[in-house]
């Protein structure tokens, strides 16, 4: 009986310990090592490169990427802060800034993809532009010719309707 109670207590203690570890993970910010910071900075470096390639792709497709470049510069500022923090031995701050940089760069990557798709869709409608030009030019020339014919008739009618005037 006593053995059963001891087993039960040990089981409860271990269970409580596991629960506490899981609960603490949500509240405790664990300190970061230099290796963590270096690894996170590497990820940030990759994310910046990936985002820039996506932005270049969107620009090549004809999208306006000025807003994305502003956000990339914010991300690069975070990257720089992370590097400074790493150099000064503040690994937790370095990981934090590098993570923010990755988040921002990944957001730019996603938005660049959307912008590229929109730009490609707009470029695929090039035939609308050509139709607008051809139809617009034809209508304009037609209207102008009509106005010219009307004005010419009125002018001719006006000249032919004049009565000769004898002077002297």
């Amino acid at each position: 009986m006593l053995r059963c109670c001891v087993r039960f207590l040990v089981f409860c203690f271990l269970g409580l310990l596991v629960l506490m570890v899981f609960a603490l993970q949500g509240f405790v910010v664990w300190g970061s090592s230099g290796d963590d910071a270096v690894a996170r900075l590497g990820e940030a470096d990759d994310a910046l490169g990936r985002a820039f390639v996506a932005v270049s792709g969107a620009e090549d497709a004809g999208a306006d990427v000025s807003g994305l470049l502003v956000r990339l510069n914010v991300a690069s500022g975070l990257y720089s802060s992370a590097e400074v923090a790493l150099q000064n031995g503040n690994y937790t701050l370095a990981v934090e800034r590098a993570s923010d940089c990755v988040g921002l760069a990944d957001g730019v990557f996603g938005d660049a993809g959307v912008l590229r798709g929109m730009a490609l869709d707009a470029a695929a409608g090039w035939w609308r532009v050509v139709i607008f030009s051809v139809v617009g030019a034809c209508v304009f020339v037609g209207v102008l010719t009509g106005v010219w014919v009307y004005a010419k008739r009125r002018y001719s009618g006006h000249v032919l309707g004049l009565k000769p005037e004898v002077t002297g």
């Binding site: 532009v129 050509v130 607008f132 030009s133 051809v134 617009g136 030019a137 304009f140 020339v141 102008l144």
Partner: peptide
């Protein structure tokens, strides 16, 4: 007429 046609053709020329 010439100026008008050029204005309408401008977007297509850009392509």
């Amino acid at each position: 007429g010439l100026v008008g046609v050029l204005l309408f053709a401008w977007p297509s020329l850009g392509l």
